[in-house]
Design a binder for these strands. Structure first.
Lengths: 147, 147
DNA sequence: GGGATATGTAACATATGAAGTTACATGAAA
DNA sequence: TTTCATGTAACTTCATATGTTACATATCCC
């Protein structure tokens, strides 16, 4: 199955934007991400609808972060992307008539619900500021290593 | 993304087999599951490799459970299916050069690893016997409801 | 032995959905 | 008014789970 990598992508994009002075164009972001400007606009557009970023057209236009990095969690970004399905595994039929299948679904649904709840809880605990700080640490470590 | 429903399918099949006297053919199972006999053989073949079921050809052939229901967990079935990817969400690149993307991946990987660990833990706690008992309860409830 | 029945498996078809691409409209700044 | 940027529709590509066809192989019963 092809994985949805949009959360990973927007995080990558947002941190680059945070490190960059002034707005960044879809073109510039697409080069950071190794993708296409249209894909960037399509995905960032969802974040704009959620009020997390803003975009400007024309000269000196592009994308900029519209909120405080410390106030944006991975959970908010996941929600902004439309809460895509978390699991690649699932029930064969959602509302089966067969009692056997109902018993199977009930057991699986419970397990998946618990795991999803934990994932979203972790997402809610991590802010963009946390990631930016982690990046800064990695950056400093690389500089130190180089001498 | 299209979800992998094989775990759901094999559970459904195994419980029908548990309720049924004697072996069940791929044909019969495929009708229970609403799928194709070849798909059943393909999937059940993985369980056979794990020693969980056995198959016989020819007259009176078919599939039968080779172990005690109380000794088989969902985790074992998941493993028998080749431990398919649990998540439909993932990193864009697995081992990026970009330090920003490394920081993003590290955060996401941790969250996903925790959620996957919880899911597999729950899977390990649920046996086929548990599901069979739950089915029996549902069956009794339906009979009672009908009068 | 020979027909009937069942699995084993390769090869190919279909369906779904994420991501990539092309094309062009719209809007803003120099 | 030219240039640069986003907005968005339409289409293509790619991955992969699942479905399907065809046929080989093994077993049972007569």
């Amino acid at each position: 199955m092809k994985r949805d990598s949009r959360l990973s992508s927007v995080l990558h994009a947002l941190l680059h934007m945070a490190e960059h002075d002034g707005p960044m164009t879809s073109e510039a972001l697409s080069k950071c991400l190794g993708t296409n400007p249209v894909v960037v606009r399509r995905t960032m557009g969802l974040l704009r609808e959620a009020g997390l970023v803003a975009s400007d057209r024309g000269h000196a236009g592009g994308w900029r972060i519209a909120v405080d990095l410390a106030n944006v969690t991975l959970r908010q970004l996941h929600d902004a992307l439309g809460e895509p399905a978390v699991f690649a595994i699932g029930n064969r039929h959602e509302t089966p008539d067969c009692l056997v299948e109902q018993a199977v679904n009930a057991a699986l649904d419970t397990a998946f619900a618990e795991a999803e709840a934990l994932l979203l809880e972790r997402f809610a605990e991590i802010t963009l500021a946390d990631l930016a700080a982690d990046f800064a640490r990695r950056h400093a470590a690389r500089r130190a290593q180089r001498g």
